[in-house]
Structure formats: structure tokens, C-alpha cells
Design a protein around this nucleic acid. Structure first.
Length: 845
DNA sequence: TGAGTCGGCTTTTTT
DNA sequence: AGCCGACTCA
């Protein structure tokens, strides 16, 4: 039973009577049971690909075709990885110990830390996130005076990233560039310096994690052989979003091991592992993807990886999953219609046997606030009809759109959370605290060191920093050592003691982290200190939290709370990973994705970008800001293939919805401080009109600035028959792409009366200007001054007056302090929940 | 050296 | 409108 030697590659037949294939459709069954070197599973949205993938892995293990440790499964986010592992363990009824289920980045970090001595880093090397890279580039660009040539940290970073994703490096770039172009020469210099600085700091950026692993494998066949031998089955999810370096990594991992390398492996290879020539055959590869959901071209994802899979891996089998188990037919028809406008795709059409379901609800607001108000009201309506808040999600194209949405959700007392966006770990105070931990793990890293010098303020400025950095480089010592030896430099007594004191603190913390006795209590144990203790030591000794508290600014108060939350995050990590240490903590923090902190049990509405939404599903979905310039985004319009990618983004958004889909837009939108007129998105026009029930169509919002009361603009369903959608809407939605600079990507149906649309657009723009000039802005502009009702006391029975809803009666009050919520019934709109502090209400005496 | 003010720029999406 | 960075003053 437990005899490893009996492992037979051909395996026991899986299939008949196997519960791993029960209830699967024929295509899914094939995807689970197919065996061979290469398998491509083309999985449309909602076609059960996670199920197929987990069952495939479980069947490999259960049939004894593979041990868990021979499986490498790559997912897009850490959350998806955790979920997949859990589901596999559920199927096997046992732990899947030794199985690698992780993201590309996590898997590569794991390999790189193991093999760190091969490239001269310690295993505690630092991972630079985009902000760190930008900080480094900023310094380099300044040093090289490259800003006058138009280089910015952002554009240089993007270019470096693109090159690294192609497995290029500074040397290769310099060799192939046009050397007579000073701009190119300068960029080569930036690139070279950037990489040199990374090396000096013992650091990798995100792209290096993949690229350096590939280089490691290519430079050291013996190292590659270890992993090629170990992973017999490689499975990759979201294959359409892989870039070139990830593709190369997969190729390396699935190569056979040549006899010369196989011979040197430890432990020695067994006869069963090699073929007749003494080679270990390449691992089997399974990739899952959907080219219609490729939305990461901007970071190097190459759709050709999936489109040309069969050419890359001759003899590959292809299985197509087209039956959808997630959405209603109406939603799928809309999705099919939209994506059908992408001309260069493989034909594929989603279908369901579940019936049409409800129609898609459309709404056009007069402003983004009006739009947000509709979203908030509909969410409440859904909630009243029995849907949990956690079953509802709101999507948008750009993070900046959250402002208006959040404001209205707060006012309506709808519990929500924003996924992604300004992430916890991107907050300044968190980065400050983390810079101490990073520096403790890697005392050669200048970025974290430079950051911690200045926070909290202790009189060490740029001058002192520069002197220390020169000293550090000249002596070839760590930054911590350089600080301890500050006496050898010409500093004033005050600055010197600040520097040595800080150096001492870092040294003590580093010894604790390494397991040495930093404090001289009985500690004979050589155990690394818990991360929580290290962090607490730093925060206590630097007084960072108290300093924030002293300022008595509510924002600083929030920052202090964030730091305390960081301590509890660290403690949680310690408890969950008793064997892990500081480096593991830092790795986890660097690689968490936006969707990773998604807590499904939280009972809140989820707000996120369309990108973050990929891979998720919700019973009710709102797609907001469906306007030209936003979706498709202005930036993408002139890019080759840009519109196609935006359309896929729309497609991804639509296909997240299970039962109810809402599509909203606004006719004006404020950006960069002033208000501009927004046109409905071309994608809106691509959805067959009979699928949409307009509560307020774009046509109705055209022309007039919206003088009616907001509450009356959006009567509940039924009050307004949905005739608006058919005629008026679609004629007014027709328009050109604005400037009409026809890039290759734009193959839009040039239907209809462009001229009249243009006229309407001009007219609206004029009206918008006038209204703005007339003062007070738009009547529908909710934003701006946040009101504060202070300690307004309300009790059941009180009569109140609401700016939008009119007269009403309080039926109850829940919550405490600033989160007090009044439940009220209004004559015009019925039941509503209001945040007492912020709602536009007055109480009648 | 550090605090405060003014001006320019921003918004695409993320591991 | 808001954030960051450069510049100015104490």
C-alpha cells in the first residue's frame, strides 16, 4: 500500500464509477482523465475549470500516478492557490503534503531562496515591490540627469520591466540598441545602474523573481535537474496571462533531464525514473485558460502563449469547455455579443441550460454621484429582498472611481470593503515600519535603510545619509556596521549618537531575528524571535506610535491604529507559522495580491477593479462607469490591440455575474478637478437592446442637466415601463470614437448618425459649462462638503425630513457612536437605512 | 536641518 | 481636487 516502488506511470484506469468524474459533462470528464505530455483546456468563463483542475490533480494522486510532491500547480493569486489546495485536500480526504500550489512568483522565491548561494545572495534577499523599484529609479535618474531627456521612474521602470519579461538584460539591450541615439544610450545606463544597485542591495524586483529563476536553470543544469526530476506534473491556470519569462520557466521545468545530469542527482535515480537512453522524461504539462479573458497585456502577458500552444507542444490534446454553470442565459448572451466584436479570436460561445433569468438593469446618472446613489439604493433593495451583502460586488475600471461610490455607500450605511486599491502595505506608515524589518533581514538594502533613517525624525538628513552610504560602499560593509562605526566619520556628537544608537537597535533586532540572544535573559534557546516581538521592539524603541498619537490629528490617529494592526498581523503570522521567521513574513507580505485578503464571510459588499474581479463570481454584479474614455479607457484607445483588451475586460466583468447584472454610467464625470461630459461606452451598444431594462437610459439624461429630484429620477421597477431602452437609447448611444484616429485595433461597427451624436455631445458640453458657471455646480452633485449631524438624537417615532426622500418616520436606531444607523420609512420611497452622522436629514420637533 | 508653501501633475489595469 | 516635490524661510 505504501510501497513507492509500485508506482506505475500508466496508472490504474480512472473513469468508470470514479466519483472524481461523476456529474461532469463529457468535455470536463476528458479534461480530468486525459493523459499525455501536454494538455490544453480551453475553459470559458464559469465552465467549471477549477473543478476540472482540482479533480484532475486528485485523480493523479488517487490513482497513484503521482505523489503530491510531484505536483506543481501554478495559479494567478495566492488566494486561488489556497483555495485549490483546500479543495484538493477535500477530495483526497487527506493532506496534500509536499504539493506545490502557488503563484509563479511564490514558487520562484521558494526556489531562489533554496539556491541563494548559487548567485551570491543570502537566502534573506529582499524583494523590491514596484514602489521600491520606483524609489531606486528615481535616485538613478536624478544622478544621471536623465529627467531632462524625459525619463521618469514610471516610464523607465515600465521599459525595464518589459525587457526583463523578455528575459533581456542591460547588456543585451546595450548590444542591440542604436548607439547613436543619446536617449537609448542613457536608458542603457539607467538599466545597467539599476541592476547593479539591485545586486549591491541583495535584492530582486518582481520581474527578476521569474527571470533569475530561468537564468539559474539555464546556467546550472544540475539545479534545473533537481526540479525537473521532482515535478512530474506541471499545471498552470490562467495561461492566457503568462508572459514570455513565465513561458520560458514552464519550458525549462518540463524539459527532460539528460543522462549526464541524471547520473549526478541525489538521491540517485531509480530505474523506473529513466527511459532507455538514461534520460528522465519531461514532466507532463496541463494549461488552462481562456484567450477571451486575457487582460494583462500591459504587463507583458502574451496571448500567443495560449493561441499557439498546439504548435509549441506538438501532440498536445485540446479540450474545450463551453457549457457555463454560473450565469443566466441573458447574461451569457450579453457577454457573447460583446466579445463577438473582437475579430481575431477563436470562435467560442458560452451557453447554459438554466434559462434566461432576469434582464440586465441599466442606469444612467447625471453625475458619478447620481450613479453611485443608484448603486447604493439598488444594493439596499437587493439586501431587503434577501441577498446577503457578500453576494454583491461593484466593479470599476480605475481605482479613482471608488471615491464617489464609497461616499454614497457610507451614507447609506451599506457595509462594504475595497479590494486592492491603496493597499494596507502601501500606506506610508506601514512601509516605514516594514523598512525596519526589511533592513534587519537584509542589512545591505539601501532602500529600506534610507527610509528608516528619516522615520521618525531624528536629525539624520540627506547629508548624513550620503556620508554613511559612501563609507558603507568604500568599506564594503553592511549599513548596520557602517552606522556603528559612525565615530570614524566627522559627525556632530548629536547626529553621531543618533546614528550609533539606531545601528545598535538594528543590530540587536537582527541578532534576535537570527536566533541569537539579543536580550540577556536566561535564553539559551537559539530560536528566531517571533516577528511580532521584533516589530514591537522597533515600534517601542523608536516611539513611532506615540509620536503619531501625540499629534492628535485624526489622520495620524488612524496611522497609529494601522501600525497596531500591523503588529497583530505579525502576531497572527507567528501563530500560524511557528516554524517560519522574518524572511518568510517579508516574502508573504511582498507577494500578497489584491484579491488575497478577500474574506468571503465578512458580510460586506465587495468593491474592486475589473482586473481584480477575474476569477471571482457573485450573484449580483454592478459594472460602473461604462463610458467612453473610461471603459474603454482613454489610454488604451491609441494602443495596438488596446480596444480588444478593454473589451475582454468588459467581458470578464459581465461573466462574473450569476443572476443579476447592473450596468451603470454617468453623463458627466469629474476628473482633474473639473467636470466633463461623458459618452456611453461603445460596449454598451454591442449588447442587444432587448437584454437591457433601462431604469434611466442615456437618452433620457441627454440634453437637460437634470433638474428633477434624484429620488424621483429612479422610481422602483414597474413604475417606469422599460420602453426607454429600445428606441431612444440606442440611437443616442451611437457615436464615433471621438478623435477618430483609426488605430488598427478599432474595428467598430460604424453605424448610425455620427453627426447628430456629435451635435448632442456639443450641446451637452455647452450646457454643462453654463451650469457650472451659474454657480453651485450640478444640482445632482452630492459630493463636496461632508455634512456632520454631530450628536443628533433620534428615537423610534421621530419624524424626519430627508433631502432626497422627503418626509419620513424613524422606526429604530442601531449601532453606536459615529456608526449609528437610523431605520426610517419614507412616504416616497419606503424603508431606508441612514447613517445618522452623515445623512442629509433634519428632525422635526 | 526641518517646517511650511506653492506649483505642477495626475488616473489604467498588478504580481 | 488632491498628492508629491521643489523651493524658501527660520
Amino acid at each position: 500500500m505504501s510501497d513507492f516502488e509500485l508506482l506505475d506511470p500508466s496508472g490504474a484506469p480512472v473513469g468508470d464509477g470514479d466519483d472524481l468524474t461523476d456529474g461532469l459533462n463529457p468535455a470536463q470528464k476528458r479534461a480530468v482523465t486525459a493523459r499525455g505530455q501536454a494538455l490544453l483546456i480551453v475553459a470559458g468563463a464559469g465552465s467549471g475549470k477549477t473543478r476540472v483542475l482540482t479533480h484532475r490533480i486528485a485523480s493523479l494522486i488517487r490513482a497513484r500516478e503521482a505523489w503530491p510532491s510531484q505536483i506543481l500547480a501554478i495559479t494567478f493569486t495566492n488566494k486561488a492557490a489556497a483555495e485549490m489546495r483546500e479543495r484538493i485536500e477535500g477530495l483526497l480526504g487527506a493532506s496534500a503534503q509536499g504539493m506545490w500550489v502557488s503563484t509563479f512568483h511564490s514558487a520562484c522565491v521558494r526556489i531562489l531562496r533554496r539556491e541563494a548561494e548559487r548567485f551570491g545572495y543570502g537566502s534573506g534577499f529582499t524583494i523590491y515591490d514596484s514602489a521600491d523599484s520606483r524609489a531606486l529609479l528615481k535616485r538613478i535618474i536624478k544622478d544621471l540627469d536623465a529627467d531632462s531627456y524625459g525619463f521618469t521612474p514610471a516610464n523607465a521602470g515600465a521599459k525595464i520591466s518589459r525587457l526583463k519579461n523578455e528575459l533581456s538584460d542591460a547588456e543585451a539591450y546595450t548590444a542591440t540598441m542604436n548607439a547613436s541615439d543619446p536617449r537609448e544610450r542613457l536608458f542603457g545606463e539607467i538599466f545597467r545602474t539599476y541592476d547593479a544597485e539591485l545586486r549591491r542591495a541583495h535584492a530582486f524586483d518582481f520581474d527578476d523573481l521569474i527571470g533569475q529563476t530561468v537564468h539559474l536553470f539555464r546556467a546550472h543544469p544540475d539545479v534545473a535537474a533537481v526540479y525537473q526530476r521532482r515535478f512530474r506534473h506541471v499545471l498552470v491556470d490562467e495561461y492566457q496571462d503568462t508572459n514570455h519569462s513565465q513561458y520560458a520557466l514552464i519550458r525549462e521545468l518540463t524539459k527532460p533531464v539528460a543522462p549526464v545530469d541524471a547520473e549526478r542527482l541525489v538521491p540517485p535515480v531509480r530505474a523506473a525514473e529513466v527511459d532507455g537512453t538514461g534520460s528522465i522524461p519531461g514532466a507532463s504539462l496541463t494549461v488552462v485558460g481562456d484567450s477571451d479573458q486575457s487582460i494583462y497585456a500591459f504587463r507583458g502577458a502574451d496571448i500567443r502563449n495560449i493561441v499557439e500552444f498546439e504548435r509549441d507542444f506538438p501532440g498536445a490534446e485540446v479540450v474545450k469547455l463551453e457549457q457555463n454553470y454560473r450565469s443566466t442565459q441573458n447574461i451569457l448572451s450579453a457577454a457573447n455579443a460583446v466579445i463577438g466584436n473582437n475579430f481575431d479570436r477563436q470562435e467560442k460561445s458560452l451557453w447554459t441550460s438554466e434559462g434566461d433569468g432576469k434582464r440586465i438593469v441599466g442606469f444612467t446618472g447625471y453625475s458619478q454621484h447620481d450613479e453611485a446613489r443608484f448603486v447604493a439604493e439598488e444594493i439596499e433593495e437587493l439586501h431587503r429582498s434577501g441577498l446577503a451583502y457578500s453576494d454583491i460586488a461593484v466593479f470599476y475600471r480605475t481605482n479613482s472611481q471608488t471615491r464617489a461610490l464609497e461616499e454614497l455607500l457610507i451614507r447609506s450605511a451599506v457595509p462594504y470593503r475595497v479590494l486592492g486599491g491603496t493597499k494596507f502595505y502601501e500606506r506610508a506608515e506601514i512601509k516605514d515600519a516594514m523598512s525596519y524589518l526589511t533592513s534587519i533581514a537584509n542589512p545591505y538594502d539601501p532602500i529600506s535603510w534610507s527610509r528608516l533613517l528619516g522615520v521618525p525624525k531624528r536629525g539624520i538628513g540627506p547629508m548624513a545619509e550620503a556620508h554613511l552610504a559612501n563609507f558603507q560602499e568604500a568599506q564594503g560593509i553592511s549599513f548596520h556596521e557602517a552606522m556603528l562605526r559612525a565615530g570614524e566619520l566627522t559627525f556632530g556628537p548629536k547626529v553621531r549618537s543618533a546614528i550609533t544608537g539606531l545601528g545598535d537597535l538594528l543590530g540587536r533586532a537582527a541578532r534576535m531575528a537570527a536566533g541569537g540572544g539579543a536580550t540577556d535573559d536566561s535564553g539559551t534557546e537559539k530560536r528566531p524571535a517571533p516577528v511580532g516581538d521584533l516589530l514591537k521592539l522597533i515600534l517601542d524603541e523608536t516611539g513611532m506610535v506615540e509620536r503619531l498619537r501625540e499629534k492628535r490629528d485624526p489622520q495620524d490617529e488612524a496611522r497609529a491604529e494601522n501600525l497596531e494592526e500591523l503588529v497583530s498581523v505579525a502576531r497572527e503570522f507567528d501563530a500560524k507559522n511557528p516554524e517560519a521567521g522574518l524572511v518568510e513574513f517579508l516574502t508573504e507580505v511582498s507577494l500578497v495580491a489584491a484579491a488575497d485578503d478577500l474574506d468571503d464571510a465578512s458580510g460586506t459588499v465587495s468593491l474592486m477593479t475589473l482586473h481584480t474581479a477575474k476569477g471571482l463570481e457573485y450573484p449580483a454584479v454592478f459594472i460602473t462607469g461604462v463610458e467612453e474614455g473610461l471603459l474603454p479607457h482613454q489610454m488604451s484607445v491609441d494602443e495596438v490591440g488596446g480596444i480588444s483588451e478593454e473589451r475582454r475586460l468588459m467581458y470578464v466583468g459581465i461573466t462574473r455575474a450569476r443572476q443579476q447584472l447592473f450596468i451603470t454610467l454617468a453623463s458627466t464625470r469629474a476628473q482633474f478637478g473639473d467636470i466633463s461630459v461623458a459618452m456611453p461606452s461603445r460596449f454598451l451598444q454591442e449588447i442587444p437592446e432587448h437584454l437591457i431594462e433601462w431604469r434611466q437610459s442615456p437618452g433620457e439624461v441627454t440634453g437637460r442637466g437634470g433638474t428633477e429630484s434624484r429620488a424621483l429620477n429612479a422610481p422602483r421597477s414597474g413604475a417606469r415601463p422599460a420602453r426607454g431602452g429600445a428606441s431612444s437609447t440606442n440611437s443616442s448611444v451611437t457615436f464615433g470614437s471621438g478623435g477618430g484616429r483609426g488605430s488598427a485595433a478599432i474595428a467598430e461597427p460604424a453605424s448610425g448618425n455620427m453627426q447628430s451624436a456629435l451635435d448632442k455631445w456639443r450641446e451637452r458640453k455647452r450646457l454643462a459649462k453654463e451650469q457650472q458657471a451659474a454657480g453651485g455646480g450640478f444640482p445632482n452633485l452630492v459630493g463636496g462638503n461632508v455634512r456632520d449631524n454631530g450628536d443628533l438624537e433620534l428615537a423610534p417615532g421621530d419624524r424626519i425630513s430627508h433631502e432626497d426622500y422627503g418626509e419620513g418616520r424613524v422606526t429604530g436606531v442601531t449601532g453606536v457612536g459615529s456608526k449609528r444607523i437610523a431605520h426610517a420609512v419614507f412616504e416616497s420611497v419606503g424603508e431606508r437605512k441612514l447613517l445618522v452622522k452623515l445623512a442629509p436629514i433634519t428632525k422635526h420637533d
